[in-house]
Amino acid sequence: MSTKQSLVDCVYIATSIRDARFTRTCVASVRRYYPSIPIRLLVGERHQCWLERELRQYWGVETVGIPGGDYGWGFVKLEALFGPPVAPVGERFLMLDPDTVLTGPIFDVWEGSRAPFLVDEEEQTEANMRHLSYDWDQLRRFDPNTRRPEFVFNSGQWFGTAGVLKRDDFSPWVEWTKPRRLRYPQYFFPGEMGVLVYVLNHKVMLEGLAVERRKILCFPPHGMDGLNAEIIANRTGPTRVIHWSGNRKIRQRAMIGADVLAYFEELYFQRVPAGHVRYVFAVCGHYLTLCTLRLGVMAKMRFRITLAYFRKKNPEKQRSASAGQ
């Protein structure tokens, strides 16, 4: 276990109803290295109350008391930046997506740094930088100070400090409705990632904000960095945050690095009473929830297609009736 817990005050996990199974593995991975660090859920959509109770009772996980509702894709993560009521000013935190796991004492990468932010160090082509962040040429029409970013990063894992950035820093680009909306979605990567990359780069280039960049991300489609369940269990691999961003499957066994997910899932259910029974219910609930959500999306799409068809058809009937008269 790392003795460097004081480097970070809190771990936030942004989650929703579709993330229950991943949230468990994420929590188990954090607790393996940091048994007493506060872990808080940022619920950006609906969530299972019974899961929150289970996490609170057996894993010491709290749920942040923010107003309920749909915050949109990833935008709930921004709430931790603005200080109270979510976080006290100056709180240093690690932000995680639920489909992540730690492979070691990741807080250590922030040791010796006074920078209020730390993000993954990535090398991207110019085309990928534009795709993964924002179109700086187009945004210059709205803000002449917009420049090509010095860095981009995946926003599923980053370290931050509450109170350094303000909501007003994002307001020119984000509508604070529910769900949150980008004012110029055609020029930003979807969700909160593009606008977060923009604001941090803007502050770095124009105001001298310090943002550290270190290698922390393991992205399974690009390789597992030699990591697997056995190596993680033996603590002999590199310290990373494995993130299955955009690569989830309903059947977790079909995912790259499935053995790692299974390892932390087993750790999770070893701690809770009647763990095997709870595991069976959790897996069934996982399939049921995702299938129900998928059917709901398909039904909405079918309804919109049907509605558009009749809207298109009715004006033609009206024009025919007018011509007949």
Rank of each mutant, 00 (worst) to 15 (best):
residue 52 E to T: 14
residue 53 R to E: 14
residue 54 E to W: 08
residue 55 L to D: 02
residue 55 L to Q: 01
residue 55 L to F: 11
residue 57 Q to W: 13
residue 57 Q to H: 15
residue 57 Q to E: 15
residue 57 Q to R: 14
residue 58 Y to W: 13
residue 58 Y to D: 08
residue 58 Y to T: 03
residue 58 Y to S: 08
residue 59 W to V: 10
residue 59 W to S: 09
residue 59 W to A: 06
residue 59 W to K: 10
residue 59 W to H: 12
residue 59 W to Q: 05
residue 59 W to I: 09
residue 60 G to L: 09
residue 60 G to W: 02
residue 60 G to S: 07
residue 61 V to Q: 08
residue 61 V to Y: 04
residue 62 E to Y: 12
residue 63 T to M: 13
residue 63 T to E: 07
residue 63 T to Y: 09
residue 64 V to W: 07
residue 64 V to K: 09
residue 65 G to M: 14
residue 65 G to S: 12
residue 66 I to W: 07
residue 67 P to M: 09
residue 67 P to V: 01
residue 67 P to R: 11
residue 67 P to F: 01
residue 67 P to A: 05
residue 67 P to C: 05
residue 67 P to Y: 13
residue 67 P to N: 12
residue 68 G to M: 03
residue 68 G to E: 13
residue 69 G to A: 11
residue 70 D to M: 07
residue 70 D to Y: 08
residue 70 D to R: 12
residue 70 D to S: 13
residue 71 Y to V: 10
residue 71 Y to H: 06
residue 72 G to R: 02
residue 73 W to K: 15
residue 73 W to Q: 14
residue 74 G to Q: 05
residue 74 G to P: 00
residue 74 G to M: 04
residue 75 F to E: 01
residue 75 F to R: 04
residue 75 F to W: 14
residue 75 F to G: 05
residue 76 V to P: 02
residue 77 K to R: 13
residue 77 K to C: 07
residue 77 K to H: 03
residue 78 L to H: 08
residue 79 E to F: 02
residue 80 A to N: 08
residue 80 A to W: 04
residue 80 A to G: 12
residue 80 A to I: 09
residue 80 A to Q: 12
residue 81 L to G: 04
residue 81 L to C: 04
residue 81 L to A: 06
residue 82 F to Q: 02
residue 82 F to V: 01
residue 83 G to P: 08
residue 84 P to A: 10
residue 86 V to R: 00
residue 86 V to F: 05
residue 86 V to M: 07
residue 86 V to L: 09
residue 87 A to C: 11
residue 87 A to I: 04
residue 87 A to Y: 00
residue 88 P to F: 09
residue 88 P to M: 11
residue 88 P to I: 10
residue 88 P to V: 11
residue 89 V to K: 05
residue 89 V to D: 11
residue 89 V to R: 05
residue 90 G to K: 10
residue 90 G to E: 06
residue 91 E to H: 07
residue 91 E to L: 11
residue 91 E to N: 11
residue 91 E to C: 14
residue 92 R to D: 12
residue 92 R to F: 09
residue 93 F to T: 03
residue 94 L to G: 00
residue 94 L to Y: 00
residue 94 L to P: 02
residue 94 L to M: 04
residue 95 M to Y: 06
residue 95 M to L: 15
residue 95 M to C: 13
residue 96 L to E: 01
residue 96 L to M: 08
residue 97 D to N: 10
residue 97 D to G: 03
residue 98 P to Q: 04
residue 99 D to A: 05
residue 99 D to Q: 02
residue 99 D to R: 06
residue 99 D to M: 03
residue 100 T to Y: 01
residue 100 T to F: 00
residue 100 T to K: 00
residue 100 T to E: 02
residue 100 T to C: 13
residue 103 T to C: 06
residue 103 T to Q: 09
residue 104 G to C: 14
residue 104 G to M: 14
residue 104 G to K: 07
residue 106 I to H: 06
residue 107 F to E: 06
residue 107 F to W: 12
residue 108 D to L: 12
residue 108 D to F: 08
residue 108 D to W: 09
residue 108 D to G: 11
residue 109 V to P: 00
residue 109 V to D: 08
residue 110 W to D: 01
residue 111 E to S: 15
residue 111 E to M: 14
residue 112 G to N: 07
residue 112 G to V: 10
residue 112 G to M: 03
residue 113 S to D: 10
residue 114 R to N: 11
residue 114 R to A: 12
residue 116 P to R: 06
residue 117 F to L: 03
residue 118 L to E: 07
residue 118 L to V: 15
residue 118 L to I: 12
residue 119 V to P: 06
residue 119 V to F: 02
residue 121 E to M: 13
residue 121 E to R: 15
residue 121 E to A: 15
residue 122 E to H: 11
residue 122 E to K: 04
